[in-house]
Nucleic acid binder design. Structure first.
Length: 459
RNA sequence: GCCCCCUUCGUCUAGUGGCCUAGGACAUCAGGUUCUCAUCCUGAAAACAGGAGUUCGAUUCUCCUAGGGGGUGCCA
């Protein structure tokens, strides 16, 4: 290692000069997980090193860059609590600077006008490649280089007078004083040409880090066809922002020890570009869900209340008739078995209304079989006389009835579960019964006795 | 076609020449707890793409091959 005491030696300079990175999304309506992960890595890099994280909205595409699309970008950042340090730069407001740069290159003889490809559209401005091999150091992939003959001049201003991405990107990065460009590795090829542009414009060439892509099971870029692909979708499905953030961070980076579920502070502390993988990563929604479940389980019960009630309410479940204490009891049972908020309504609706659906298979298997309904009705009568309608005595009672009738407790419990919840799974039966209370339990047990009596309707 | 990048269990990854009998996590399977589901606990199966080098010694370094991806736009 470098033991020189002289501080401005080699890699030391970058520690002294402050780091400035940026996230430069083009607002197209939704924010792809690959893009947001790039934002996250930029943000973490800045926060870890005490640098600045900036935002540049690349809204030069008039058709797609609507105000709503821009708002979506901000909403995604806000949801994930990715804050930025300076006023966002809107690329659309920088066009004159881009064109000025092109003029400069033109008058310096570093660019020329031509109709590239003889399109007949008129003359565009082309940037002249320097005619030598180009190379740059990538923080993840090492020394990258490209031969002069493989580099072609590129259009920097279209024949209609609008600047092209490459020009705008470089001019703006110089303008914003960007020191590290951290972006997807689909930009590697562009980077050689960008390096030449930086030099031609006499800008300080930043350091680059090209992140691997996020791919699907076929190794192709992950898209909406492969499942949830946009930040908004994950939020709507009931992911917690911190869990989603944590999962995405781990897609291409690991702290080097065995930690996986990590707080934001821990991640910031541990994050570094050198630990980022250079090969593509495949999305694993199962693990993403598991991660979310970990976060949900770990949160204080009262923090669970807001998402819990919101999800139910927005799915048409009316909670107004139930006390805080009542919903708290339900929440207590449900928190440990919730992986996605979006699943809550189907799993808990029966606690809050009478018109829940009966699971068809459950009905066939548990109610329309043997003497299930007989058992149920016998149990119902006994439950009606039970003094103490609590989980403990309910269990005693059910076991006693089972023994009297010479069946296993399960023979009574499964039908009862379907009868009162419509489901074949869920929290402990006795807890469910206690919370629902004697009246509703009795009514529901009676109701299925009538409704599902007789031979199976279908088969 | 040409150019560039990538390659450890099914998946995310640890590993920077000996600590590797290749570790962890998700998923899977088998048990335990249990009325079911979830949680929790125990255990199992599961990988260094292939081939040459370099070296006393390669998952780790080099080269070749194969496979995958990206680029090759007056898209970003």
């Amino acid at each position: 290692m470098d033991t020189s005491p002289w501080p401005f030696h080699r890699g030391e300079t970058e520690k002294i000069m402050s780091i400035r990175v940026r996230f430069a999304p083009s607002p197209t309506g939704q924010v792809h997980i690959g893009n947001i992960r790039a934002a996250i890595y930029n943000w973490l890099f800045a926060r870890h090193h005490g640098g600045k994280f900036l935002l540049r909205v690349e809204d030069t595409d008039r058709e797609r860059s609507t105000p709503e699309a821009v708002a979506t970008v901000f909403a995604a950042l806000q949801w994930l609590e990715i804050d930025y340090d300076e006023e966002p730069v809107y690329q659309s407001s920088r066009q004159s600077a881009h064109l000025e740069a092109a003029e400069k290159l033109l008058s310096a003889g570093l660019a020329y006008k031509a109709d590239k490809g003889d399109t007949g559209k008129g003359e565009a401005v082309l940037f002249k490649m320097p005619g030598r091999d180009l190379s740059f150091h990538d923080e993840l992939k090492g020394e990258l280089s490209k031969k002069a003959e493989d580099l072609q001049d590129l259009v920097i201003v279209r024949s209609n007078g609008t600047p092209v991405f490459h020009l705008a990107n470089v001019v703006d990065d110089i303008h914003m004083g960007i020191t590290h460009v951290i972006r997807g590795d689909d930009h590697i090829e562009n980077t050689y040409r960008h390096v030449a542009l930086y030099e031609a414009l006499q800008g300080q060439v930043p350091r680059f880090a090209h992140l691997p892509m996020i791919v699907n099971a076929q190794g192709k870029p992950y898209s909406k066809r492969d499942g949830a692909a946009f930040v908004g979708e994950f939020r709507d499905q009931g992911y917690r922002a911190d869990a989603f953030f944590n999962y995405l961070v781990l897609l291409g980076w690991a702290p080097g020890d065995d930690r996986e579920v990590m707080s934001r502070a821990e991640i910031v502390q541990a994050f570094d570009l050198t630990q980022v993988k250079s090969s593509a990563a495949q999305v694993d929604l199962a693990k993403c869900e598991w991660m979310n479940g970990e976060y949900i389980r770990a949160m204080p019960l009262e923090e669970f209340r807001a998402p819990f009630t919101e999800t139910l309410t927005s799915n048409g479940v009316d909670l107004s008739g139930f006390s805080e204490e009542y919903t708290r009891q339900v929440m207590e049972l449900m928190q440990v078995r919730t992986k996605l908020y979006a699943k809550i309504p189907d799993d808990t609706r029966f606690f809050f209304c009478e018109d829940f659906e009966y699971n068809e298979k459950g009905v066939r298997k548990r109610l329309q079989r043997d003497g299930a309904l007989d058992h149920l009705s016998a149990l119902r009568e006994r439950l009606a006389t039970l003094d103490d309608f609590t989980a403990v005595s309910l269990e005693e009672c059910v076991r006693a009835v089972a023994e009297e009738r010479g069946v296993s407790p399960g023979e009574l419990m499964h039908p009862t579960r379907v009868a009162v919840s419509g489901l074949t799974y869920g929290p402990g039966l006795f807890e469910i019964l206690e919370i629902l209370g004697r009246d509703r339990v009795g009514a529901r047990m009676q109701r299925v006795g009538e409704r599902f009596a007789g031979p199976p309707a279908d088969l």
